[in-house]
Simulated scan of single mutants.
Amino acid sequence: MPKGKGDEGGFLKFLWNSDTGEFLGRTGSSWGKIIVFYIIFFAGLAAFFLLMLYIFFLTLDLQKPKWQMTNGLIGDNPGVGFRPQPDQDKNVDSTLIWFDRNRKENYEFWSNQLDIWFNAIPKEGGSDVTKCSFGTGGTDTYKDKNKKKEQISSCFVDNKQFGECNPENKFGYRLGEPCILVKLNRIYGWEPIGFGLNGKQYNQQQFPEIFSNEMKELEKEIENNPQQGMKPMPMFLQDYIKKEAEKQDHPPQWKTDFLNSVFFSCEGENPADKENIGPISYYPHPYIPSYYFPFTNQRGYQSPFVMVQLKKPMPGVLINVECRAWARNINHNRPDRLGMVHFEIMID
Rank of each mutant, 00 (worst) to 15 (best):
K247G: 11
V262C: 04
K170D: 09
Q205H: 13
F42H: 12
H250I: 04
E105G: 12
L58V: 11
D140K: 13
N77T: 15
G339E: 03
S127F: 13
E221V: 03
R186K: 13
Q204M: 11
N213F: 07
R83Q: 14
H285K: 13
A272S: 15
K170S: 05
I34W: 05
A120F: 08
N146T: 14
F293G: 04
V321Q: 00
I347V: 05
T139W: 06
S303H: 05
R299Q: 14
Q309N: 02
E267N: 10
K131W: 10
P294H: 10
K170A: 05
W31D: 03
P167K: 11
L53N: 10
F207R: 06
V36M: 14
K170M: 03
Q151M: 13
H285T: 10
E219V: 11
V306W: 00
Y188D: 05
D140N: 15
P78C: 09
L62F: 12
Q253V: 14
I241W: 00
H285P: 00
P286F: 03
K5P: 03
Q253C: 04
P2G: 10
M52Y: 08
E244T: 05
Q228I: 02
M233Y: 06
Q238C: 09
K274A: 07
G44L: 13
I187L: 14
N198V: 04
G316N: 14
D7H: 08
L58P: 02
F171N: 00
P167F: 02
S18K: 10
I277S: 00
G199S: 09
N224C: 04
F171A: 00
I152P: 01
R334C: 07
S261K: 06
A325K: 01
K220N: 13
Q201Y: 11
D140E: 15
G339P: 02
K147W: 09
I34E: 10
T70L: 08
Q298M: 12
F295Q: 03
K216S: 14
E214L: 05
G4Y: 09
I74Q: 13
P78R: 05
V321F: 01
I152A: 13
L45Y: 09
I288A: 00
K243P: 00
P65Q: 06
K149Q: 15
M230F: 03
K247E: 15
N320A: 11
N146S: 14
P178E: 00
P294E: 12
Q113M: 07
G189K: 01
D158G: 12
G278R: 01
F156A: 01
L51P: 05
Q204C: 11
E150H: 13
C132S: 05
W31N: 02
S29P: 02
C155F: 03
P279E: 14
Q205P: 02
P315G: 11
K311H: 05
L259R: 04
F305M: 06
F14I: 05
A327V: 04
Q253D: 13
P286G: 06
C132A: 10
D93P: 04
D87E: 12
C266W: 00
K131H: 11
Q206Y: 10
E344F: 10
